[in-house]
């Protein structure tokens, strides 16, 4: 693997291979010494133009567990705030000897630009670009589902026949976009659920169905219910009348939680707005994978960094 820019480029075999390596990485995390010498001497740069503490520390933990050197670069208070271009930033990192660049950027397509530009030789990992994709989140989500559903027999398997309801702000969600392609590659079915104002009008070509009625979708007993964060900064844009109304119609409250089967998985990429898209009881229920997702995120990112940085360079 040279870069990881989008889950859309991943075949079923690619995806299963990454998830299997993530299983191996997860196994090593139960050892007495959790640090592997695998990427000794490699340098991973976390290049974050948007704030994201969770994703950044997850990548940082993953790189450090593999013994890579980590340089954190956040745009705030850096040369970027003085007007430096992406090109100059990239060339600076190149000269510093970055072997991989993990990039989070507000503009959709920025990681792709970096990978295709020739400004930098490093492997590029997309850690979220605009409203486009967030592939490692989709990988950790699929990994979490596979472990919950298949347990220790997960290796080599997809998510065939599983239905995943993704609920909330689909319109702005790169998590939803990355998930839908990966889930489709793995054989799962995706249903987008949310208010019409937060679901893209034209979903032609997307392997997903649409529902505006959460209760109707839950009645079909999906195996996975993934709640997306309502970005409170978007509230003022009047996508829905009030937080209260959103919670009542599309939130996973205690009453809806009680209707889920005991094996239904409740997921959330975090950070959660408890009481808005998910109730506290749902977030802390045995069905909830919120904390597993954090641990699995490190394993999935270790797998991606390993596949990107070990082995002879294939150009």
């Amino acid at each position: 693997m040279r870069h990881l820019l989008s889950t859309r480029d991943l075949s079923r075999d690619d995806a299963i291979h990454i998830l299997d390596v993530a299983e191996d990485m997860a196994d090593t995390q139960t050892r007495e010494v959790r640090k592997l010498p695998t990427l000794r001497g490699k340098t991973v740069v976390n290049l974050f133009f948007e704030d994201s503490t969770r994703t950044r520390i997850s990548f940082e933990a993953a790189a450090k567990r593999l013994s890579a050197d980590v340089i954190n670069f956040s745009a705030k208070g850096s040369s970027v705030s003085k007007g430096e271009s992406l090109k100059d930033t990239a060339q600076t990192l190149e000269e510093m000897g970055a072997d991989a660049v993990v990039i989070r950027h507000g503009a959709s397509g920025a990681p792709h630009t970096l990978a295709a530009s020739g400004w930098i030789d490093a492997g590029i990992v997309n850690a979220g670009d605009g409203t486009h994709e967030h592939p490692t989140q989709a990988l950790l989500d699929a990994f979490t589902m596979r472990r919950r559903i298949h347990g220790t027999a997960s290796r080599g398997r997809g998510l065939d026949g599983i239905t995943v309801a993704i609920v909330g702000d689909i319109l702005h969600s790169r998590v939803a976009r990355s998930n839908v392609w990966l889930l489709s590659a793995l054989g799962a079915r995706t249903v987008f659920v949310g208010p019409p104002t937060l679901i893209p009008l034209d979903l032609t070509g997307w392997p997903a169905e649409t529902s505006y009625d959460l209760d109707a979708t839950l009645a079909t007993q999906p195996e996975v219910v993934m709640m997306l964060r309502i970005q409170t900064e978007r509230m003022k844009d009047a996508f829905f009348p009030s937080p209260h109304e959103y919670a009542r119609r599309w939130g996973l409250d205690d009453e809806r939680l009680a209707r889920l089967g005991p094996d239904t998985i409740v997921m959330h990429p975090g950070p959660m707005n408890r009481g808005l898209e998910i109730s506290s009881r749902a977030a802390d229920s045995p069905q909830s994978t919120v904390r597993e997702q954090v641990a699995n995120g490190v394993s999935a990112r270790m797998a991606v960094l390993y596949l990107l940085l070990s082995g002879e360079r294939e150009d």
Partner: peptide
């Protein structure tokens, strides 16, 4: 010798 060969797939431990 990880960087001298194509990427190796790990096996389970």
């Amino acid at each position: 010798d990880l960087s001298r060969h194509p990427t190796r797939a790990p096996s389970p431990t």
